[in-house]
Design a protein around this nucleic acid. Sequence first.
DNA 1: TAACTAACTCACCAGTCCGTACATTAGTCG
DNA 2: CGACTAATGTACGGACTGGTGAGTTAGTTA
Lengths: 208, 208
Amino acid sequence: MERVRDAERTRAEIIDVATSEFADQGYAGARVDEIAAKTRTTKRMIYYYFGGKEGLYLAVLEQAYQHIRALEQKLDVEHLEPVEALRKLAELTFDHHEQHQDFVRLVAIENIHYAQHLIKSGAREGLASTALDVLTRIMARGVTAGLFRDDVDALDVHMIISSFCIFRGANRYTFRAIFDRDLLDPASRDHQRQMIGDLVVAHVTSRR
Amino acid sequence: MERVRDAERTRAEIIDVATSEFADQGYAGARVDEIAAKTRTTKRMIYYYFGGKEGLYLAVLEQAYQHIRALEQKLDVEHLEPVEALRKLAELTFDHHEQHQDFVRLVAIENIHYAQHLIKSGAREGLASTALDVLTRIMARGVTAGLFRDDVDALDVHMIISSFCIFRGANRYTFRAIFDRDLLDPASRDHQRQMIGDLVVAHVTSRR
DNA sequence: TAACTAACTCACCAGTCCGTACATTAGTCG
DNA sequence: CGACTAATGTACGGACTGGTGAGTTAGTTA
């Protein structure tokens, strides 16, 4: 049955369009009128459902973070040995960030705004543990097996992976402008994917 | 002699104020009126000297890039052995980015805008060679001395260093919101500085 | 089917913001 | 000094932009 009026669908469509617009133009650069024009509904509905521009942006941010949290939660690497598990985790982040440029850009935008919306929204709750749990367990197993150094902080390893995977998307354009190399070029994808794995494995297994 | 009218000083003051404002608020978020109010001159002067908001932003960007290029050019590591030279280079980038958060934020903002201004401006000319020359020479020496792998791309190494050093500043706020750790906390500074050095050295010296 | 509410449309406003026309003054040079 | 030009200040316009008031229609329920 073709519902003419469908609150859920309307809401979802607004958020989807807004995600592209905010990711594309930034918070201040995005236009409420433009977002409305790209939906099948009107600007008034944005104010009806989200209260205003900021409320809409918050909803966009929450959905984006909720998505990555869901992905992380279903990663299962307990059956792999530590080195392979660590590599797998790095590659999951690599693949996710590559496929979700909207997310990468929203994170960059949110940082420009000092993460003030993320702090307000409560979207960040539970993110820390979800992201770090798997990593912490892998590293504990690696240390116990005598494969990994015992003085490496899991959060440091997370930062190494994140910085590399975020950078490819977030700094793609200035990098290309300066070095004439597209960091997201499919031709160098496998090479880079291998590299981030090598990098973290080398880091946690290195001898001092 | 106290010149009441001083074109150079006025110009420079406008650029300095604009640098903070653009870095702080982003391109769309920054306000021409606000920039003018924070200088000792008026908005009219911005249009007199820079033509408009975009021209001013371009000037800001060019000055920021010019600054880092100057720094890179005077780095001298030829007298150090390869491993130490590489570490030194990583630490130079680390220190520069840490001390120039305006630059790091401008790069992030420029990427949000697909580097369209950087491409237009010609500020990027010469940047590639300046940044890569030193690194390429270090790596060649390392390979010749049998210390480094011979299949590592200098640009890949540059990317590893950049991503790490940029991330600390550019993603500081979301990282803190989620993990409750300030990446620029002076207490963890030396540890992280050591880490990026270890990371690249391990990468170029690792055995396959 | 009549009453009710959620979902939606339309027209409009008030404030913001980039940009400019025009007037004026400081410094320079013959 | 007097004419000229670079530098600067004032006041304002007009388009844009986030937000809203008031009314309308679809679907639901008693």
